[in-house]
Amino acid sequence: MKRIKTTKEAFNKDLAALLDKFDVFAPSTKQGKLDYLNITDPEDITWTDDLPYKSPKETVFPRVEEIMRFTKDDVVPTANVKPVLLLGAKPCDIESFDVFDGVFTSEKGLYIDPFYKERRDKMLIIGSGCAAKKPGCFCDERGYDMTFSDKCDAFVALDGDDMYIDLITDRAEGLFSGSDCPPREVNKAPETTLKIDAHENDIFTTMPWEDWAMSCIGCGTCTYVCPTCHCFDIRDADDKGEVTRCRLWDSCMYSNFTLHAGGTNPRTTQAARYRQRVMHKYVYLRDNIGITACTGCGRCIRLCPGGINIHDTVKDIMGRTGKK
């Protein structure tokens, strides 16, 4: 891993040259709250050690995405999206792409999702570290180092006006100018202490889900701000006969998520929906793709109007199943 040193000014200049080629997403406060926003001017980037409010999953999994267009007797997939450069992604958010890759492009999933794959293959990720945990953050317990991740193409660190760039993959070579400097010292990742080893049936009916989900109002914010939540719906839009088919986010916390056309609903209570969210992340997906779908970013905890805490729920499950 090579490391180069440059200045923020020079970096911004190099970045400006990339704006034509990439849709650049970076942390910015230009809309108020700190979020990963599509920026058109490097000056709009908010260089910070803070974790943005929402996750960057929109860069590969847009909230609404046209996937195809119907013609009279054919259907044309929507193709050739502009590549995304995700800049300043925090280590927990970088980890989340592993989950998305597992669901959408791994062989275990049987089918490859072509729309996700196209975006993901073209995407360039430049990470940056966190200085401190926010209230609710628990990335360390999930085994992630908040200061660094090498699951991206490059990693930047700002020191005053100086900028250090770790070049991790070949794709990051030559994008930014700078002078060589000694490589970064990588910390050992912390041990994963928060995970569920119990079998799904040992947890499904035996845990006090009603108590845990008591204050849930079914708003779905947890799933919308989550970096790994990926459930979606497909809807058609008919604009005066021009029919497009779109994929859009859905949420297992909504009451109509599993509602059949005939009126049957296998998941009728908010407690069952909360159970689905926790189990899907910590049990089901681990069984299916081998990854626990939680990065410990704490967003769902900080933004839950009901004060529901997935970290405490999982901790409680670990205690009750005797696997600490």
Binding site: K54, G218, C219, T221
Partner: peptide
């Protein structure tokens, strides 16, 4: 423009108590 249509505003609102919201109608 900032809205992500998660409907949290509706769920948190004590006056938004319709069992079938217009936006969820099947």
């Amino acid at each position: 423009d900032k809205c992500i249509l998660c409907f949290t505003c509706r769920q948190a609102c004590p006056a938004c108590y319709c069992t079938a919201c217009f936006i969820d109608r099947k």
